[in-house]
């Protein structure tokens, strides 16, 4: 299992569409994916779970991955978040 702290960079936060992108990506990996924030722990493969974290720009999330492809999953997720979900400032 690996854990990592990441920061949300895009201005609209983990809104509907960014959440959908994150969940879609996580779904491609076998590893379990959980997000911790303000004491909540949600399933990172559930869009409702992710969305209802209401993570705004600057929010810090502890992500937790556990499974055979956890390293690749972490890398992909970090890239997506760093790229602001590919939908910044449209």
């Amino acid at each position: 299992m690996i854990k990592k702290k990441i920061t949300i960079l895009n201005s609209s936060g983990l809104h509907a569409r960014p959440s959908a992108a994150l969940v879609k990506l996580a779904g491609k990996f076998k590893s379990d994916f959980y997000i911790h924030m303000y004491g909540y722990r949600v399933n990172g493969k559930s869009i409702l779970g992710v969305m209802t974290l209401a993570a705004e720009q600057g929010a810090e999330l502890d992500i937790e991955l556990d499974g055979p492809d956890e390293k690749e999953a972490l890398e992909a997720i970090e890239t997506l978040v760093a790229n602001k979900f590919g939908m910044e400032d449209e």
Partner: peptide, 16 residues
């Protein structure tokens, strides 16, 4: 369309 797609994700959510 993207908004509706997001809605579809919510409706199909496994957790739900």
């Amino acid at each position: 369309s993207e908004i509706i797609e997001a809605q579809k994700h919510i409706v199909a959510d496994q957790e739900i």
